[in-house]
Each structure stands twice: as structure tokens, then as C-alpha cells.
Design a binder for these strands. Structure first.
Lengths: 219, 219, 219, 219
DNA sequence: ACCGACGGGACCTCCCGTTGTT
DNA sequence: AACAACGGGAGGTCCCGTCGGT
């Protein structure tokens, strides 16, 4: 794995910094969270048993419960891992773009890529967690809402910058634009997965791109 | 309840048609499906236990299993009940509209009303079921996809009629328009429920209304 | 079992009184409580596993948990059963005695019989529960203390009657006498069981009998 | 054990030589036994988990299992520690008394002090262990019975000396007197802890003091 | 048509003990 | 000497489904 390689490379460095301690444990901790995240994303939190996670991690109960006090705690760590994966996808996509509109398009493009290459097996963890946990799991709901807030903040930053450099119409409400884009793309993800067809995502993406071009960009 | 009243009204009629047989049983059957649908919609299929349904229906195990062979079968019946509720919401909303565009707006308005008055407790059953079952439950996934297909067919009919009477731009692709509208509104439902705020739904609704007006209506 | 036979005999009678309902369940409920009481009394509450009770009752988990919501609830029911057994032993012993002093002696004699014929396997449930639960289980502690209170009340009644008929010295404090007798005999039970020798019980009994004769009886 | 014997022999010698070696280990060993003794005395042997002992000792599993091969072995060491505490309480109380009767009273006084100042948290370890282990744990039962035997031997010595100096009635049976005193006081300890009231202990103590004075002392 | 009793398996959690490492 | 990591089994609880009764 890329990750394992990365660790192998970083280890000597961290040794220099005296971070030697608790390496193995941390690694296992992360590995469990990562594999649990995938399972939770596919079968849901209540649909995934600890035994499933045991099988995926090839660890026994004792090994898992050493790192997580409960399934609840593990589910939070798993969500955090998933959120981090999503963040990295956005970071990678936004990195290449230069103008504000380009950046917004890059944001949309991340969702568009979910049909073929989801950040985790099972689709968008934000969408999945939002649907499963909105009524039943305050802790996860909170965390999920925080990701949405992050995205909205990102939109605010991008739109502000775009307005400042006269690329974006100053009338544009960043918050509303963010909600519209997230809703449309996440809805597209849902449809694409349900129908097993990426068309809905493509339609959503094209529609929003045109909208950005015609109604958000300053002419 | 409206539903109960409806039953009371319909019963004498069905009596006229000799449907005397299986009345009480059918009623219980429907009641179980209805209450299970609400539970499933809130806590999910794997998050809802038969004991929850027993409590809600005030029936013992035997009473439920007389009507449904398994939890699986009950979940299908419950989804069918939920789908029917949704259908009725759409029928009621579309009934009043006259023009094609009005009809499309009426379609969107149904989703807009979900924030304050969802068809079932727990939000949109189509969205919820799609997310929970896309990877794990082919039977429910199929049924959910069928609802989407129904909506698309509805769009086809409306758009065709609109084109025929020169209200809608003949360039409009009904299928794509349907997917866009469904994705945007369902995404809005997700956000509204997650954030506990109907703004995302309102934004989605307003955006699509303007889109219908400017880009779908024939000028 | 005697008990089962008894039930079989009583059943037709209870039918006459319309107590037909919930017969089987109640019977199983009682049987579980009785057998659990014996186990708890021998191996303690925390030392007895539900699997032990399953083996003893020849019931599966499902069968037991139908009747008791938790091990905690079962432990309370089991203690109540044990307390009832103890009560019956006292009732049987006190029934035959005539004078106040005789009644007190009969009370002591119940404890004396514990060495050879304890009310339940494992010795005195009051003593055992008191020791195990005084610091850890308020519910059981309360119930155990209530039995002690019952015994003290019994002493009050006996002593009062004895004083009234000039058989007992009016200076005698019934409460203190009760505590002394209970302490001495329960301590005797403990020693007898620990040493596997009934001598301590016999010594305690003889001592208290002489004490009753010389210092409690009115001369 | 060989190890115990070795320690007993080596200790004075190594002290002479200022023995640095093996001191830290022995200290930890004792600390674990002491803290485990308190826990076992409160929550019982089967009610106390190794994790409880880990928390109390602030040691990890490996740290404890280095000193004790198993929970079973630890429980024996803990009981030995508890027994030693009890022995010291008796030694301290008996040290001050001069006559035989005074010594017996001093013996009783130790139990009387248990209500306010038990030798360990949780009450009398002899009583607690006797009740929990009489049917289930031969090793601990043996050790507990040995403490009782010690006490009886102590009574024999005191009574013999008392008879020899004409302080105690030569008719007195030391063994029976010991059993009576132990039973009465331990029963008092049980009641005092159960009821949260030292009265039973006081009553037992006063009763036995009067008994010693009137029926044991030679007049 | 519905209830109550029960089987037996799965689930989460915790337990005791072992091993490798430092 | 002590810790961290882990195995594997047992504990209590809950689950789904069956069956006999009424």
C-alpha cells in the first residue's frame, strides 16, 4: 500500500524526532479505523457487526477493543478517517485550479468522480452518514454537519476571493451557492449509485458548471 | 387519521362488492406495514428490530408473523406503503396545476414541503432506502429504483405535453431534467434534515424554479 | 417434583376461579427463579453465569430472557424466592410452639437446622446475600435488610406477648435480643459451613437457649 | 512455597547486608497484594476483575502477571495479606491487656471496632471469604478455616492461662467459647454492615462481655 | 387472528492470560 | 521490571423465527 510505504519512509524521520514510541499501536489503530470506515460506508453503522470488522482487519475482538473502547468510539474514528479521505480528495482536486470559478468546478469534479472512484467503497461517507444518523446518532450527525460546514466555509473563501478579483458577481451568496452545489452533487451521487449509472452525476455536474459560468461569473 | 377515516369510508363500499372476506386481516396487515414503514424510515432497516415493530403495533410476534413471513417481506411491504404515501403526495400536489411548467414546479414543491411535513417520520423514504440499500439489498434497491423510474416517466409525460403545446423548449431532455430535479431536491432534503434547517431545500427549490422558467420554458 | 405435582393438582381448581390465563408462563417463571436461587446461593450472584442457569433450567437464553429482562431482575426474583423459602421454614417451626420462650427457641432452632438441611443449597441466603451485596448491590441489600427487619418485628411481637403474659422480663429489649440472636446464629451458620462441622451452630444454639432461660424469662 | 520460606529466611540476613537486590520487586508484589486484597474484600473474588486491580495498582497486565502467575494465585496472596492485617489488629489489641478475661475482651473489641474501622475496606475478610468460598474455592476455604483455627488456638492459650491463675472457671471449654465469640461477633459484623448501623456489633460485644464476666470468670 | 413460550444464534463487551519489546 | 498488543473464549443481552394453543 501507498500508506505502508509512506510509513516506512517516515519512520526513520520520526525516529530523529523521538516519535519512536507507540508506533505499532498507532498503526494498528489507524488500520482498524480505515478498514472499518470502508465497511461502515458500505453496510452502514448498524448494519456492520464487529465480527465483520474482525474479519476485515484479521484481528480478534481483544485486538480491536484494545484500540477502541466500543463500537461507538470506533465508528467515530472511522468517520474521521473517511472525512480525512474526502478532504484529501478535495485538496488534490482544488490544488491544480487557479481562478475562483475553476476552483468551484474542481470542487464539483470531486463529486463527479465518485461514480467511478468513490473515496471509500460504498460511495460518499458524508451522504451515507447523514442519511443513517440524522435521527439516531447525534455524535455522528454533528461530525457530518461539521464537514458540510467546512465545505460552506470553503465556498465562502473561494467566492470572496472571486469577488475581490472581479471574477465572481458580488451579488452571489456563497452560502446558498454552497448548499445548492452540495445538494445537487450529493443527490447525483445517490442516484448514480442507486441506478448503477453515472449519468445523474454527469447531468448534475454539467448543469452546475453552466450555472457557474452564466450566473456566478461576473460578465 | 385521514387514512383511518378513508378506510372507514371505503369499507362499506367494498362490502357492496362482496369483499367481506379477509377484511380484518387486511386492515391489520396494512396497519403493521404503515407503522413499520415509519420505523424503518427513521432508524433504517438494519437498525429497526422486530421488537420495535411489536411495540409500535402493540402486537405480539405471532400477530406480525401471521401477516408477514419474515422481516424481509415486511420491509418490502413497508417500503410499498411508503412509496404509496409518496405517490399520494405527488398526486395531490400535481392535481391542482394546469400548465406543464406549473406541474413541474408542483413536483418540486412536494420535496420542498418535506422539511416541515415529511411523507413519513424520518424524511424521504426513497432517499433513505436508496442510501441504505444500494449495496446490500437488491430487492429494496430495485423497488427504490422503480420509484425513480416512475418519476422520470412522469417528467417525460409532462415535458412531452409541454412541448406539444409549445410551453416547453423542444430541446429539453426530459430524462436529464428529471434526474437533475430529483438529485437537487433529494440532496436538499438530506441537507435540510442533517442541519435541521429548511434553507437548503428552499435554495434548491428556488434555483430549479428559476431554471425551469429561464431554460425550460419556451420563450 | 413435588412442586410440579402440586401445580398439576391445583390447576383444575384454579380453572374454576378463572385463573387459567398465563399458567404455563408463570410456572416456568417460578421454576427459573427457584433454580436460579439455588445457584446464586451456592456460587454467588457474580459467580453465577446465565449459562449456569440455562443448564440448570434446561432452557435456552431466549426462554429465560422471555421471563426476566436481565440477570439483575432474575437475581431479585431469585432472592424473593429464597426469602419465601426461609419464611416458610420459620412459619413451620414457630407453628408448633406455644409459649413466648418456646417460640424464640423455635426461631433459633431453624438456624440450628441449617447445617444439615439448609433452606437452599449453599446455606442461608440472607447471610450470603448480605455479605456479597452490602457494598455493591443496593437493590439486593435493601431486600436483605428487609428480611432482617421482618425478623426483628417478629421478635417484637413475641417479646411483647411474652411480657404481657408475664413470661418474659419486661426489661428485655426485643430489638437488641433479635440482633443478638440473629448475629449469633448467622455467625454460627457461617462457621459451620466453613468448617464443615455443625458444632458452632450447636454451641450458638445452646448458648442462646440458656440465655433465654436465665436472662429473658421472668423468674 | 519455597519462595515464601526463602524470603522469610533471607529477609533478616539481607537486611544486615543492606540488601539492595530484589527489593523493588518485592515491594511491588506486596503493593499489588495489598490493593487487590481491598478490592477482593469489597467486590468479592469473582466480582473483581484483573482490570479493576490494574486500575487500582496503576499497573498494566504484564506488570501484575510478572508477580503472580494467575488471578487465583493473586487471590491467595491477597488473602494472606488481609489475614496479616487482621492478625496485626489482634496483636495490637491483645498487647495492652493483662488478665485472661481482659485479653478475651480485647479480642472481642477488635471485632467491635470493625464497624468504624475495618481492617480492610469491605469489612471482615475472614467473614467475606468464608461466605464466598465455602462451596467453590477449596484453597481459600482452607486458608480461611486456618485463621479460625488460629483464633481457637489463641482462645485455648488464653483460657488455659486463665485457668492456671484461677481467673477462669476450669469448667470452661475454650473451643466452644471461641466458636461462640467468633460466631457472635462475625454475625454482628455482618448485621452492622448490612444495616449500616453499629448497634448489632455493640449488642454482641456487650452481651459477650457480660457472659465472660458472669459465666467464664471464676468467682 | 392473535398470543405466549421458547430455541438458538449473533451481537457487543469484557475477561484472563500470553507474548514480544523495551 | 514493566508495558503494549493481541488471542480467544465467555458473559449478558437481544435478535429473528417457529410452534402450540386458544
Amino acid at each position: 500500500l501507498t500508506r505502508a510505504t509512506e510509513c516506512a519512509i517516515l519512520r526513520p524521520i520520526s525516529l530523529l524526532f523521538g516519535e519512536e514510541t507507540m508506533r505499532k499501536g498507532q498503526e494498528t489503530h489507524n488500520r482498524i479505523a480505515a478498514q472499518a470506515a470502508a465497511l461502515f460506508n458500505v453496510t452502514g453503522y448498524s448494519g456492520t457487526a464487529m465480527s465483520d470488522i474482525m474479519r476485515a482487519t484479521r484481528l480478534e475482538k481483544g485486538g480491536i477493543y484494545r484500540h477502541f473502547a466500543s463500537k461507538e468510539q470506533l465508528s467515530l474514528a472511522a468517520f474521521d478517517y473517511a472525512a480525512e479521505q474526502v478532504r484529501q480528495r478535495f485538496a488534490a482536486s482544488l490544488a491544480e485550479s487557479e481562478s475562483a470559478i475553476d476552483t468551484l468546478v474542481a470542487f464539483l469534479a470531486v463529486f463527479r468522480s465518485y461514480a467511478e472512484r468513490p473515496p471509500l467503497p460504498g460511495g460518499c461517507p458524508v451522504l451515507n452518514t447523514a442519511i443513517e444518523c440524522d435521527d439516531t446518532n447525534p455524535a455522528l450527525r454533528e461530525r457530518t454537519a461539521a464537514i458540510i460546514a467546512e465545505w460552506c466555509a470553503l465556498f465562502h473563501a473561494i467566492v470572496s476571493a472571486g469577488i475581490a478579483c472581479s471574477e465572481i458577481d458580488p451579488e452571489v451568496d456563497a452560502q446558498q451557492l454552497a448548499l445548492l452545489c452540495i445538494a445537487t452533487m450529493e443527490g447525483g451521487v445517490m442516484l448514480a449509485r442507486l441506478l448503477g449509472d453515472s449519468t445523474p452525476l454527469e447531468v448534475a455536474y454539467q448543469h452546475l458548471c453552466r450555472y457557474l459560468e452564466h450566473s456566478v461569473r461576473l460578465h
